[in-house]
Amino acid sequence: MEMSSILFYLLAAATLFFGFRTITVANPIFSALNLALTMITLAGIFFMLDAYFIAGVQLAVYAGAVMVLFVMVLMLFDLSGEARAFSRGMMSGILKVGGVSLFGIIVIATIMGSFSNILVIDSGEAAAGQALVQPTTRDLAVVLFSRYLLAFELLGLLLLVVAVGVVAVSRIKGGTHARD
């Protein structure tokens, strides 16, 4: 086996393991830490796919900021009473069965697919993809700031709205900034 295949399988196994732990660990803090590890291994896979900028942003934004925020909020709450991970009741029972069976269908489908080759997407074309010149960060910037400029600006607007909204939701009286 080649070096890159071994690396891919290692990273994929780690990603799936941490992803599985994310949804099964009872303590939400461990859940968040496992999710952070999932994101770091995914960043590794992005590096393998020559998406260097996306991988760096994945580390800085997802693993470094979003997940730190999650962990921080969870540590602020005292959730030591959390004994059960899963919800109870008829409705959630149905959801549980449905969710797990859907996941089972995905697993079976992928296993069957990988045996019967229905998932192999035109291997000739995929092999040709190796020879294609991979886009650089410069290409990404050029496309982002020309063709998708409107979407980019709208995202900026969305972030502004979200920032204002979050401040409005979480504003509390008291603390060091109390004025009245």
């Binding site: 992803g19 949804i23 991970a85 959801l95 549980k96 995905i106 992928t110």
Partner: peptide, 14 residues
């Protein structure tokens, strides 16, 4: 597979 894991998480966690 990852998407399926996330989906199960949304459905079963409380």
């Amino acid at each position: 597979l990852l998407f399926g894991l996330g989906m199960v998480g949304v459905m079963v966690r409380k």
